[in-house]
Amino acid sequence: MSIEAQVRELVEQHVEVAGPDAPLGLQSLELVMLAEAIEDTFGLRVTAADVVPENFGTLARLVAFVGRSSQKK
């Protein structure tokens, strides 16, 4: 499964994804849970400073964030 498909799966536990650039509108508790799920799924460390709209605001941004973080690992 591609990174995008995996990320989409995690996001869709919490909200419907209208498109890659559509605002996700996650609530704070959903963000906490999603950040945890991304850590578990991709073996990344998601720091609190990563949990910002620039990374979690849309599916495309989140996929890009996971891609960047995976390369740094």
Binding site: L10, E12, Q13, H14, E16, Q27, L29, M33, A37, D40
Partner: peptide, 29 residues
């Protein structure tokens, strides 16, 4: 972290949609 093991003829999309109707803490990951 919750995981739902489901027996039946159902797709993921339907299960996720049901999950979203529950409070965040009750949603299977």
């Amino acid at each position: 972290r919750l995981v739902a093991v489901v027996e039946g003829a159902v797709d993921l999309k339907t299960l996720r949609a049901r999950g979203r109707e529950l409070p965040p803490q009750q949603r299977p990951t």
